[in-house]
Design a protein around this nucleic acid. Structure first.
Lengths: 230, 230
DNA sequence: TTAATAGTGTCTGTCAGACACTATGTG
DNA sequence: CACATAGTGTCTGACAGACACTATTAA
């Protein structure tokens, strides 16, 4: 009942579900695999933990994201750990999965052959259990969007409340009342107005621009009541 | 930038935060360590993943809980994964932590020298990062109690609504209005009335007894609005 | 009847949903 | 001016908090 010291360790990797919104559609970043199982297939950016270099798992996630996508995501949160004998042809494996949220305005500079953005709605299957992982991440981001400010990290530096609402609605898959949405955003207290900047001129009243308050730029969620979809 | 196949794997373990309520106080199960680091100290029940025997991590958690405490917890959920170089004197380690909730009526039969129940309020320090893990688990159970039926797994087989409310209040650390609490419980739709059974006779109106509906006995939470503490 | 706890009726304040209204820019 | 989108005033219904009231048992 009490084996010697350490039994054979499983494979330990870290994967990241990197999400953004492109043209009102939720997209996930996929990388072309360079190594053994599923070489050449598109899968979540991931890699081994480097016991020598990584102080902890979130550091490993940040490093892997940087290496594979050249992106520093402002929001990175542990999603869950997926492990078992069924998910990798090499045998028992364990993957600590993080999910990250980024503005699509940041990804345009990053054109790489080994990286592509895929609408989550078009994903049918992925290597390993990555399809299930993506589903879990979508549930998480939708759930958090309902009561936290996390989704605001998908916005560009400055944005209008209307644009913010469109993002919210795209993520949640439904429409919300303008008045209710603005009251709710107010209650989050996550935004500060910014001088219009380059007001995009049009034949109507221009909107106030907002940016995430510094306290929210570097991390974390705010608790608040949720909002019903129409 | 692209190392050979698999770098040295970290130590991979599974720990379980097993919670119950004893005399309105939240308690956590601790086991006396039989192995190398911190031998003899009290720590969370944990153990290595057995790559040969465990199909996945939750199976490993169930096995470890059974081995260390002889308890089959009705509710077991992944809490988070804690990993890094700082948490184990042996070096870089990774622990997938589950949290479990059990009725104190189930633990009385399990008297073991290597297992004890400690009020969480008295915990000052624990081996590894287990103190921080316990804190995380407490936050989780409190948060879930606010909107789900998970805490009902701390109740015995049959219980009254008053007893349920006392449990809720003990967990949340505050009082709630009786009427509001009952409306809220109603909305969860997790209970079914059971024939009084052995009505504990006293000099007043006896209460209706309830039990968890079968659908809730085997797992999972229900979403509902939360309740304010007075 | 009294004591003591179980359980409910119901008023009220708060807040989200609805929606129409005002505000403010350009052509 | 018209037009289009930004932003607000405000009514209303739903529902949680408060709390007093009724119900039911044994002594």
């Amino acid at each position: 009942m009490n084996p010697q010291s350490a039994p054979p360790s499983p494979l330990v990797t870290v994967d990241v579900v990197l999400l953004t919104l492109i043209e009102q559609q939720l997209h996930v970043a996929l990388c072309k695999r360079e190594r053994d199982p599923f070489t050449g297939a598109w899968a979540l950016p991931g890699g081994y933990v480097h016991v020598q270099d990584d102080a902890d798992v979130i550091s490993a996630a940040e490093r892997i994201l940087r290496e594979k996508t050249k992106i520093d995501a402002p929001y990175l949160e542990q999603l869950a750990t997926f492990a078992g004998s069924h998910r990798d042809p090499r045998g028992w494996s364990l993957s600590v999965v993080y999910f990250a949220v980024v503005s699509s305005s940041l990804i345009e500079a990053q054109q790489q052959d080994s990286l592509k953005w895929v609408p989550v709605s078009t994903i049918r299957s992925l290597p390993f259990d990555h399809a299930a992982i993506v589903q879990t991440a979508i549930s998480r981001i939708q759930s958090k969007t309902g009561y936290s400010s996390v989704f605001m990290h998908m916005m560009p530096e400055k944005f209008t409340l209307s644009a913010l609402q469109e993002t919210y609605e795209a993520l949640m898959g439904g429409a919300v009342d303008k008045r209710s949405f603005r009251r709710w955003v107010d209650s989050l207290d996550a935004l500060k107005p910014v001088g219009s900047g380059d007001t995009p001129l049009a034949s109507h009243r221009p909107a106030q621009y907002y940016a995430l308050k510094p306290a929210f730029k570097t991390q974390l969620a705010v608790t608040a009541k949720s909002l019903d979809l129409k």
